[in-house]
Design a protein around this nucleic acid. Structure first.
Lengths: 206, 206, 206, 206
DNA sequence: AATGAATGAGCGTTCATTCAT
DNA sequence: GATGAATGAACGCTCATTCAT
């Protein structure tokens, strides 16, 4: 299916991906023309279509690559840690560091989420990220009544806090990933601990 | 500056705004042409340029209108309530209800945030929303050392939770605004209460 | 369905049709770009797409217009003549005159017949032309066994002779439509008369 | 001039010719890219330009090859037959059989006749085919006043009948070459015989 | 206020051809 | 002989915007 590329081919492809991510994020996907991409790199227009079947497909591949890379970074950070609280903390820290290094990709996801053409990919990537978080949250909550619904809500809340803090403090506020991570971790842990207390209190009262 | 419009003129303008919001959200700002907008409404091309100086200006006006409307809804919900916790709860509930009714506008903000051309407006609107939230959070924290930095972080966390839960549970999950608001409120309150405890403990220890 | 055009609009459309017919025939459909067409007429490129949805659709409309016009000319020439032989002669003469005046259209049909994209239209137009001819031939043969198959063959033979003579003598040979028509008529009539004799002889022998 | 090829080279070239004839006929000359040709065969792009100097030159060679092959088939069918009527019949039968086997090539000629770039080759091939037919017709008419003009007309009529019947009955109608040939032969012979009668009557009357 | 027509720069994409390996 | 990569002009088409009526 995928074309077999020589080493030189793989480098060219990577170069196009990286440059496109940057320009799409800086200037917007639609306002950035294929012409601009190839001129920026200094190659002929045909090169683009040798490596990507269309501009749309390029962004799709960027989103997939990128989502995969973030999840990989999170998994690697957690390693074989078994305590859910530590897992959460390690995951959030890894996420902040990754977002600090890949702000452009983050912007592209935000954009792609608003376009029908990319909705499918974004949904898939979001689902995968959510599943990972849900898993950690469930480890934390233990099993019991209402765990599934609670875990989904809490996982979303955690992702919301992380994204918003990363955007406002890290990207716009220029703070360091670790400081931002501290803030996110402590807010989320309080939210989570309270949720577990609530669940236990509910269980005792029955 | 602003053109003086007849009643009929004001209705036409409103019609164009509403239809554009819907189409921009469904189909994307760039992929939706002015042609499509005027054809969809059934008027000639000139009409569009009678009411808006450009397509770009149209989206700017949408964003401003919309941001203003959300803040108005929040203020109205809070009314003259003075307890910060209740203020926060009323604000989050109003936000959820507004987002449920204006999902398209929400999508447009998300899109506009990624485009240089609209970054200024979005930043302004976000700043205003943040300031409102910060004010409530400060009321809650009381005054003291580190309040400003803490309030900014907490306000962002609250906004992050609200947005993410609205997106995933309300828009995609199809749940009712009030149920989603419950979840957001309880997560945020735990985060906030914990933060106040922490601050007090810190104060005592000095 | 079809856009309502002002008088000026109708004239522009006609101008585009006529110029395209000429350029497509002289230079080929594919080698002639939309740019060339609009530059040749001295209008902007958008004008083309105001009147035609695509270059392909333009040729389809040319073929339909043209086929309709030829049949109209033939019908008008035959008028209320009732003798089949005279009908045939009048039809062939009208055809030759029309082909002399519309050599470009003739070329376009020949081209379109070879392209999958236009095959449908060409088939339809050919069928209509053939049906008209078959009708005349049947009038000539009378009814009887094998008339249908014979009429189809004879009608095709007549069309083949007319087309080939028009191409080689009229278009390339530069002879007058009436002289070429004489040749076509006499060859076809001999072929037809012989066919009727044959049919009668066959009938008598039974 | 022509490159000296190894056996393998000759086979590759033949493979390219055959595949191109098919694709050009099915899909059109212009819409079929060199890329498609080499991918269809499974070779690299360079191979094409090793054997043919350009896509245009490829079609020219196809037309020449093909025209030569048809005339060869006709000559072989006639052999050393001396009776003009039998010659004509054998020629038409051979033509029908050849056309049945080479419908794609027939389509390509029809296409090429409409393109300035190939007009020269097509004219040459048509002239050669016409000369062969004229020779047979002259043999039939004998010599005398007006023979040349008559022969040209009759030869064209014969070719027109053959081509049209082949197209409509053989290719579209799916009938057998021999049945179609019967129809063409009998129509043409009646046309020819009548022409000879006419010429003799004319001669007697002087 | 409103329309239909027009503009023309610019877009995503294709493709015949070339060339280093 | 053959390949994968590259070129860049050209193509069909779109679209924000303007304008005469």
């Amino acid at each position: 299916m995928t074309k077999q590329l020589t080493r030189r081919g793989r480098e060219r492809r990577r170069q196009l991906l990286d440059y496109s991510i940057r320009r799409f994020a800086e200037n917007g996907y639609h306002p950035t023309s294929v012409d601009e991409l190839v001129n920026g790199i200094g190659v002929g227009k045909g090169v683009f279509y040798w490596y990507f079947s269309s501009k749309e497909q390029l962004l799709i591949e960027i989103l997939e690559d990128t989502g995969h890379d973030l999840r990989r970074a999170q998994k690697q950070a957690i390693g074989d840690e078994t305590d859910p609280i530590t897992q959460l903390e390690l995951g959030i820290r890894a996420t902040m560091r990754w977002l600090a290094d890949h702000q452009d990709a983050f912007t592209l996801f935000q954009f792609a989420a608003t376009q029908e053409a990319f909705a499918e990919v974004v949904r898939t990537e979001n689902r995968l990220a959510l599943e990972d978080t849900v898993r950690v949250v469930k480890g934390f909550l233990g099993s019991g009544r209402g765990t599934d619904a609670s875990a989904l809500i809490l996982a979303n809340a955690i992702i919301g806090v992380s994204n918003q803090l990363s955007r406002s403090l890290l990207i716009e506020g220029g703070q360091s990933p670790d400081v931002v991570a501290d803030a996110a971790v402590s807010f989320c842990l309080r939210g989570l601990l309270g949720a577990r207390e609530g669940k236990r209190a509910l269980a005792r009262s029955r």
